[in-house]
């Protein structure tokens, strides 16, 4: 019993944030009196066009798909560019990785609409492009940070290139790559809200609706949920990062 509890303790922060998020999603209506203070008058003060649970689900779905694609692409591109036969691409790939970060996500969205129209798809495409960069940059940094002597030893022992990659390079780069994944996911959660401007259904909906109608309560409700979601997921990732570090005996 005690062992079970102490094993749970490191998960306390992510668990607490998630419960808070859940409570906010399900119990937002209970705060009507509070939001009435912020938004006096006779109009509605709780966003109702969709349930918050539905918006959260849609948001998570978009983020999940986008993050999955950008993490896969970013890690794969990072691996390819650091292979002996892929070295020619390395300067190009690392340049793309650093330039892309300075590109505002709204601009990516604006560019995606004329090509892909409105809705979830252009949002996902924009999120993939934007989320690619942190994970790609960290994959490159992680793999390039493996000590040359370790690589030489791995090869000199007679490991196959595939074994060197999966047994030596990726485990040693895991912590850095994972930090990149964490940034990608967090950025994607926050940025996904902008998808509401081009017709995707996300937790950004109340924010946009509130801005358009001058309803500050809506804006706050959307922002609160997006914030709680980002913090919940981020603290979950922080815990996973600790686990990776522990497993490596560092």
């Amino acid at each position: 019993m005690t062992a079970g509890l102490s094993g749970l303790r490191p998960w306390l922060a992510p668990l607490a944030w998630s419960l808070l998020l859940l409570a906010a999603v399900l119990g937002m209506a209970e705060l009507e009196a509070l939001f009435r203070q912020i938004q006096p008058g006779t109009g509605a003060v709780i966003y109702q066009r969709d349930s918050f649970a539905q918006l959260l689900l849609n948001h998570l779905l978009i983020v999940g798909v986008a993050a999955l694609v950008s993490v896969s692409l970013g890690v794969a591109a990072g691996i390819l560019a650091t292979r002996a036969w892929g070295r020619d691409f390395l300067p190009l790939v690392s340049q793309v990785a650093s330039i892309g970060q300075t590109f505002p996500p709204v601009a990516v969205l604006a560019l995606a609409v004329p090509l892909l129209g409105f809705g979830s798809l252009p949002t996902i495409v924009a999120l993939v492009l934007y989320g690619l960069l942190p994970v790609l940059r960290n994959t490159l940094a992680g793999l390039q940070g493996v000590p040359p002597a370790v690589l030489e030893a791995a090869q000199g022992m007679g490991m196959a290139p595939r074994q060197v990659l999966f047994e030596v390079e990726l485990p040693l780069a895991a912590a850095v790559i994972f930090a990149g994944i964490r940034t990608t996911v967090t950025v994607t959660i926050a940025t996904a809200a902008i998808g509401s401007t081009i017709g995707a259904s996300t937790l950004g909906d109340p924010v946009i609706a509130g801005l358009v109608n001058g309803n500050t309560a809506y804006v706050l409700q959307g922002a609160l949920l997006i914030g709680l979601l980002a913090v919940s997921v981020d603290s979950g990732f922080e815990r996973l990062q600790q686990l990776i570090a522990e497993r490596q005996g560092l």
Binding site: E152, Q155, G158
Partner: peptide, 23 residues
């Protein structure tokens, strides 16, 4: 074959090149 050849030859280098994530 290079990999088979290397497995037949011990290789020790400066700075050891020990795998830091393994015992």
């Amino acid at each position: 074959d290079a990999q088979r050849l290397r497995r037949r030859m011990g290789y020790a280098i400066q700075n050891t090149g020990l795998f830091p994530h393994w015992t």
